[in-house]
Design a binder for these strands. Structure first.
Lengths: 218, 218
DNA sequence: GATGAGTTCTGACACTGTCAAGATCCTCGG
DNA sequence: CCGAGGATCTTGACAGTGTCAGAACTCATC
């Protein structure tokens, strides 16, 4: 309603037949709806309403609901790439880079809940979409790069792909389950830290294992 | 269609007004639908259809769709508790217990895709539901027990709750993202192992970090 | 200025979740 | 035996949804 762009910006957006930039507006509204109502409360028509456009308009740009959600997921990957690259670049050494990367990942997830609610939702998103695959691989690449650096600096025997997958699982799992688990921990009488701090703790704990020592016990 | 219970079992289930055990039948059908169509393709009416019952029947037992999905999630936790407890009991030492636990967790997730698709889906399930909290905490408890054992045997300084949370994040993240990540790895020219094997590899890598050594390099 | 491609709208359809009201069945006290 | 009451299930209705076909509008280009 009191939408993102002020009516003055573009001359009377509402009485122009052409929207100007519908795809972007739809992606934005979609992320908004997802953040407020979750994927199960998502509605194409609600998105169209917020973009002040008819209910069938989105179809022309995104095909169907799946298409729009996939576009949102792609945007999420893009944010992820931007932020994690910046985190890695600002880091001091491989270990610090991974810690900062983990923190950046969960921070993006928290700050863009609408986008990230949908990234790995297999049945809401079309994983075959080229842009999805492209940007997903790119995001994965940033992580792989950071792990390669760790391997170079600390442990050349490290299985890089495996370690990268492990890291990603860890942080994604963290943002997925932290809500319920916080409650379970509370029920058991303990409280846990903030998510970004947890991500960093997790990373450091994990790195000790990744860096390894003479393939010790077992 | 060729449903679970043969028509002979109970005398002509279909022409009896009372179903006999509708709640169970609904939970079962719901898990079926979830496994086939995912949470976004889930439909209360489809569930009712498979249980050969009118579209409003589920409401009487579960309130609304959220209620039924929550019941399915509770069942998932129950499976999880059963299987992980068995895994831990059959293990030889704390390290082996954790490895088996991780493997059991992902195995349950794979073998009950309908149930587990919904366990941590915050906006499809009512996390305040007492049974959900109860059984979730119980499942968490099994994991905490295994970590406590590790702490006792290997590293008394371990932060147990934190480590348990980390483990759970890791395996849950693994089952969540393995589909897309497999594709990304393939796009990069590598292939990854089967999920249960991955879970065990992950666990062993992690344990090295948990067990720790003099907080080594940096 | 007409043509045609690119956008957006209107209207319709089948499907969904939820609610209210009614029908059916079982139990249990008389 | 039976009939009242509660549990269970059905029917019917409502607003909301995604998708599709076809029409309406806009704009650039010839």
């Amino acid at each position: 309603m009191v939408a993102s762009d002020t009516p003055q910006d573009r001359p009377a957006k509402t009485d122009r037949y052409h929207h100007g930039n519908l795809p972007d507006a739809l992606r934005e509204s979609a992320a908004e709806v997802l953040a407020e109502r979750g994927v199960s409360g998502f509605s194409l028509r609600e998105v169209a309403r917020r973009a002040e456009v008819s209910h069938a308009a989105p179809a022309h740009h995104f095909g169907d609901a799946r298409g729009l959600l996939t576009a949102v997921a792609v945007e999420a990957f893009q944010h992820l790439v931007t932020e994690t690259e910046a985190a890695v670049a600002s880091a001091d050494g491989a270990v610090d880079a991974l810690a900062k990367l983990g923190r950046a990942y969960v921070t993006v997830s928290i700050e863009h809940p609408g986008h990230c609610a949908v990234v790995f939702d297999a049945d809401a998103v079309d994983a075959e979409d080229p842009a999805y695959a492209e940007w997903g691989t790119r995001a994965f690449g940033v992580l792989v790069g950071a792990i390669e650096r760790l391997a170079r600096e600390e442990n050349p025997d490290l299985d890089v792909e495996l370690a990268a997958f492990l890291c990603w699982s860890m942080v994604q799992g963290l943002v997925d389950i932290h809500g319920p688990v916080q409650k379970m921990a509370a029920k058991r009488g303990t409280t846990l830290s903030e998510i970004p701090d947890l991500a960093e703790s997790f990373t450091h704990l994990l790195i000790a294992g990744l860096v390894g020592h003479p393939p010790a016990g077992r």
